[in-house]
Design a protein around this nucleic acid. Structure first.
Length: 224
DNA sequence: TCATTAAATTGTT
DNA sequence: AACAATTTAATGA
């Protein structure tokens, strides 16, 4: 089971910290265990931390009553989110983040985040790259939403979890139910099921109970 | 350890 | 959306 310092040291920004900075981050950052179905953060809550997933999996959800368009996003272990809200202080969270299964989340306080922002060039570079990646993903979602058939959408939905910059060290086995995969890909559960079988026949994934094993990330990215 | 049951997930219509 | 089949987890003998 990964630890906070292991996750940070494996991340692009963690490698850029000197010993003192790393020590400070580890001292300031709180780790919380979220049970399956629990909230990692709540919509409307004040933004006071940058949040990382140490272990487990969280998904972004929008309440249907709000009816706003939210990019369906899953954050696996190693991923960090909320920097956009943190930079726009004062701001409240605009989405719920729910643990798909038991998840350990890290909360880096705003003050620590700002300290790194002021002092560490590598941290700034990482944030720029992460924001740019998200922008690219957002554009890709808009494009694929119209252009690609459901099989390709599911393929890309899975492949995006293997972005080495955003989510370093994603395991090849994704513990995601087919319902979650449908949510992530923007298709119904039934269609996700059929797509997964197509992708399995193509030799790109192996479908198992409660998850899928990804065999060929590149194949998924370029599937169509 | 094994059997039973409930819950979750999957495959199909 | 609804249904049946399958897998897992939990419980107790």
């Amino acid at each position: 089971m990964p630890t906070l310092d292991a996750i940070i040291l494996a991340s692009p920004w963690g490698k850029a910290l000197d010993a003192g900075e790393l020590e400070g981050v580890l001292a300031d950052t709180a780790v919380k265990v979220i049970p399956a179905g629990g909230y990692v953060c709540r919509k409307g809550a004040p933004v006071d931390a940058w949040i990382g997933v140490i272990d487990g999996l969280a998904k972004m959800t929008s309440l249907s009553s709000e009816g706003k368009a939210v990019m369906p996003t899953v954050v696996p272990a190693g991923g960090w989110f909320g920097e956009g809200s943190l930079l726009k202080f004062p701001e409240v969270r605009r989405y719920d983040m729910v643990a798909i299964r038991e998840t350990r989340a890290a909360y880096m306080p705003r003050a620590t985040f700002n300290r790194l922002l002021d002092s560490n060039i590598g941290f700034n570079r990482f944030l720029l790259q992460q924001l740019n990646e998200r922008l690219g993903q957002f554009i890709a979602v808009i494009e694929t939403d119209r252009l690609l058939d459901p099989d390709a959408r599911v393929a890309r939905g899975l492949a995006q979890l293997f972005n080495p910059l955003l989510y370093p060290g994603t395991a090849s086995f994704l513990q995601l139910s087919q319902e979650d995969i449908g949510l992530l890909s923007g298709v119904s559960r039934q269609r996700a099921n059929q797509s997964l079988q197509v992708l399995e026949k193509a030799g790109l994934v192996k479908v198992e109970y409660g998850g899928v094993k990804v065999l060929d990330v590149e194949g998924l990215k370029h599937f169509d």
